[in-house]
Design a protein around this nucleic acid. Structure first.
Lengths: 399, 399
DNA sequence: AGCTTAGAGTTCACTAGTTGGACATAGTCG
DNA sequence: CGACTATGTCCAACTAGTGAACTCTAAGCT
């Protein structure tokens, strides 16, 4: 950054090239690095030595049964990243390293009506607990990714008005957490982080253009375009919940009528089942009952799917992503909801766009957002192009 | 490209840096280049000499009344690019240089039913005529951008099925033209090129995220995301004409019902006026009559605007562009159509996305596509990042 | 007019960094 | 056990950018 076109910048670029190659492959010998990066063996030798001295990389004496190949891998404690996700009902924290391994992950319920100060207290506490549990060195923490369930201005870091966390409007969560933890904090909303999580670890691996649809108390989408989260100039891209399906439909909390959200989000759907199934129903419950065969719940889930499919068809015509991943509680319904979505997409999208679209359930469930927060911390950190290709599989995390 | 991380690649990068700086500013002294690029004066001195020897750049002895500043500018004949645009009714060709100046531009009517061979004959002829007229050196032609009014697979270069140019389906226009002119040809559809044209020379200058809506016999959109045309993984992004506005609306040529196109495209709108205004009406005529005060035409234009606005609102919720540019014949209607569009957007888009959106008419009219083809040729050629910031104004072209 | 000044461009010695080839090393294969 | 082969390292050559010194020109001042 400092010297844009000098050879020291070239050197740094080559360092990153090597680090990225190693990260993507997991571990490589120097000769392999030379081949994949196109650098000469001599240069690789120098760079590996430099990285080893800096502690970024570890050289294990010999790994395969070959001649004398010393395999190079990212040193596990070269850097630590932390993901924090505030959900509507709980708080999740994950700790990972630069090698994309999740070292620990834990969640606990969070009271919706808690003040933001209480929330951050809990988060700080949980982060500290995990740091102690995993025994990582605090000084190795490179960054924190933070997810919040509402519109956030990424530039200023201010949380917009959100009905989900009432007392939080106007706070600056990233600054708050940075103050408590003393490391850089990067923030984004839950839909974008879910998209990132599925992209790096879940159903979106190997794809560069992805839409992640999250259905919960609202409906939002996280868009990945060309391997990066797309937020739009104003930061509000992905508001699929408020595209109009029916100009004279129900009034939405946004002030318009017939938004997708009014046909799909929990707060509008659950009342439909109140008279028949009681008032304590949650979306989770509807999904469970539907899977057990309850016809009313099945019908409601299918209807929701059809409406989401209409929205996805529009998205598909406009953006033509190669994959749509469904997240949130609703994804647990599997084919009960995916079938109707695909049907609607097939009906309403133009054939050439629909043909190569695959609609998949999220592979990470409720973990998508925390893992996305981890990925955000990773991607904001130094090596900017970490979302290139296929990545190493995620290790099973406890909790 | 050949040696990814070597210092020769660094050198090439620095060459491009300098060229870009000069291009963006029009002309600079060496000291200014050093300041804007961050390179040292010595390096700039070497690079300028190299570029001058290569003929890429011209050094005019002295320009301002300063001390002894030799201003550096791109040499006018360093490279020539050509834009060719096949429209529904005419063929346009433009010739420009690397300095973003349009040297000549001409259009002629094209018979819709002409065979593709005839079309290419005409194009080749017109290109040759302009080359002669401007007196440019054929060997200096760096590339050709080609616009076609229909879906094209950018990878394979094959034109998809299109009702607009019946005899052209399955041809490979880029290869065809490359064969005739002997230079690299890059192809894209009219909406994308219109977007590019407006981005570089028209209403989109200085913006990085733009949607160009073209209303003609169909409705299409060209999306610019982060300064680059976004085509989507399947190449069919931007099909705004086929998002569903009314599930039980008129049947569209795509097979669905109630697509935006059925409310806005000429082929569906003109029949509305047949009984009152006769059958010879064109969209152009409707616009002219509307501007002269004809109430029926005004009503139709406003209705079209409202429907387009609904589509733009969806686009806006999903992508949140900072600017929407309206192109095609309809743009001539000015406020008659922009007013209703803005009204619909304000009504159907979520406020935070609509707030910072500006809806503008295209500044280039029917020239948008040819100029976009020029810009495509420029951007595909070497210096990849030519769409960075503000560009030099377009010189008035004859014809 | 003559002197000073200040910024522009060039030259030169120096340094950072990559590369090809030579060389040592340590495994496998016959 | 020796030939073979791919790996990693070392060294000399080369490429390219940089700071400092230097020259040059025109403006400003006396």
């Amino acid at each position: 950054m400092e010297t844009p076109g000098s050879q020291s910048s070239l050197h740094r670029a080559n360092l990153e090239r090597v680090v990225r190659a190693v990260r993507l492959a997991g571990s490589l010998t120097q000769a392999e690095i030379a081949r994949t990066t196109g650098l000469s063996a001599a240069t690789v030798s120098n760079i590996v030595r430099e990285l080893k001295d800096g502690g970024t990389v570890e050289v294990t004496p010999t790994s395969a049964g070959g001649r004398r190949a010393r395999s190079v891998s990212l040193s596990g404690d070269a850097g630590i990243v932390i993901g924090v996700d505030f959900g509507h009902t709980h708080l999740r924290v994950a700790i990972g390293n630069l090698a994309h391994q999740v070292l620990a992950e834990e969640s606990e319920p969070l009271d919706v009506d808690a003040s933001s100060a209480q929330g951050f207290d809990r988060a700080e506490e949980l982060v500290n607990r995990l740091i102690v549990a995993t025994g990582v060195d605090r000084s190795k923490i490179a960054g924190v990714g933070l997810g919040v369930p509402g519109p956030i201005d990424v530039e200023s870091g201010t949380l917009g008005s959100t009905a989900i966390l009432p007392g939080w409007t106007g706070t600056r969560p990233a600054e708050e957490l940075r103050g408590r933890l003393g490391v850089p904090v990067h923030v984004d909303n839950d839909a974008n982080l879910g998209a990132l999580g599925e992209l790096v670890w879940g159903s979106g691996r190997g794809v560069k253009d992805l839409a992640y649809i999250k259905v919960a108390s609202g409906v939002g989408a996280g868009l990945v375009i060309n391997g990066k989260i797309y937020r739009g100039p104003g930061g509000t891209a992905g508001e699929i919940g408020h595209i109009t399906l029916d100009e004279s439909g129900p009034v939405c909390r946004c002030g318009n009528r017939g938004c997708l959200e009014t046909f799909a989000a929990a707060r509008y759907v659950l009342p439909l089942l109140q008279s028949s199934h009681g008032t304590d129903l949650t979306m989770e419950g509807v999904v469970r009952l539907g899977r057990d065969g309850d016809p009313g719940c099945r019908r409601v889930i299918a209807d929701v799917g059809r409406h989401i499919g209409s929205g996805v068809a529009n998205l598909c015509n406009l953006l033509n992503p190669s994959r749509v991943v469904l997240g949130g509680d609703l994804a647990e319904a599997g084919e009960l909801v995916l079938g109707p979505i695909r049907e609607s997409v097939g009906r309403y999208a133009i054939p050439s766009a629909a043909r190569q679209l695959s609609v998949l359930p999220g592979a990470l469930g409720g973990r998508a957002e925390v893992l996305g927060a981890l990925a955000l911390a990773l991607s904001e950190m130094g090596d900017s192009t970490l979302l290139d290709g296929t990545l190493t599989a995620v290790t099973p995390a406890f909790t």
